[in-house]
């Protein structure tokens, strides 16, 4: 857990890709031990934000600290679990080989890798598929394998980019309840999603639109602030407000 009590702290982050401004001065503080939802439509800048936090791409300007380490956060990378939006599973490796590779890369020993593979596969309901080639799995199973990779080393900070896409409702519910358990153990879970209804599972959310954070806080507060019945309406109201401002 971070000493500052913040898993991620960033100030005035901007990122340009040529003419496109993906982030326009994003300042966010994400406390440790919460489930934090980054909500917004495609192109809002959610993925860019995660990639900057991981040091995969440098910001154009602004600063960020992840688990108290300035980006790029090389030293704390073994404490971070990342599930990219792309599948990012080797289809020509077995489920077990995929997991073991990432276990080795974050420095786990072989005994721990073996134990944790069994645990995380039980969690994503893929027990018994450890020796299956990923290419033989269904789309949903592949996504679950991808999530299992992010969870394998029991990281302090989980950065999950659209983890629930293509996962059936029942399993989605069990994922959310697991994320809740993780936060009870002091872990931080940052999830991007464009499904507004999923935000009800989060302790805190930030609504993003074209590279800006429109609002942040507990879901109920955001709804109240916007005078909306649900987050979808709150989001639309905030976008309208931002356009007129």
């Amino acid at each position: 857990m971070a000493n500052s009590g913040l898993a991620i702290a960033c100030r005035k982050l901007t990122k340009r890709f040529g003419e496109v401004e993906a982030l326009r001065g994003v300042s966010l503080e994400i406390p440790s031990g919460v489930t934090f939802g980054l909500l917004g439509p495609n192109g809002a800048g959610k993925t860019t934000f995660l990639r900057i936090c991981l040091g995969l791409t440098p910001p154009t300007s602004g600063t960020a600290e992840v688990l108290d380490e300035k980006i790029p956060p090389r030293r704390v990378l073994p404490k971070i679990g990342y599930m990219p939006q792309d599948l990012a599973v080797y289809l020509d490796l077995t489920v077990g080989e995929n997991l073991a590779l990432f276990g080795r890369l974050v420095g786990m020993d072989e005994g721990a890798i073996k134990t944790r593979i069994a645990e995380v596969l039980r969690l994503v309901e893929l027990e018994g598929r450890v020796d299956s080639l990923a290419s033989t799995l269904s789309g949903g199973m592949r996504r679950r394998t991808s999530l299992a990779i992010a969870l394998l080393h029991d990281p302090d900070l989980l950065l999950l980019d659209e983890p629930t896409v293509g996962v059936d409702p029942e399993l989605r519910a069990s994922f959310w309840s697991y994320f809740g358990e993780l936060t009870k153990r002091g872990k931080t879970v940052v999830i991007t999603t464009h499904y507004m209804e999923e935000a009800s599972h989060c302790d805190l959310v930030a609504l993003m639109h074209v590279g800006r954070v429109l609002s942040r806080g507990p879901p109920a507060t955001i709804k109240e602030r916007a005078g909306a019945a649900n987050l979808d309406d709150a989001f639309l109201a905030l976008v309208r407000e931002a356009k007129t401002a």
């Binding site: 990639r51 991981l54 040091g55 995969l56 090389r74 990378l77 073994p78 971070i80 990342y82 990219p84 939006q85 792309d86 599948l87 990012a88 599973v89 080797y90 289809l91 990432f102 890369l105 974050v106 420095g107 990779i149 950065l159």
Partner: peptide, 13 residues
């Protein structure tokens, strides 16, 4: 193409 490089470089590799 599979997004693997991104995932690999999100580890200490």
């Amino acid at each position: 193409s599979g997004g693997m490089l991104e995932r690999l470089f999100a580890t200490p590799l």
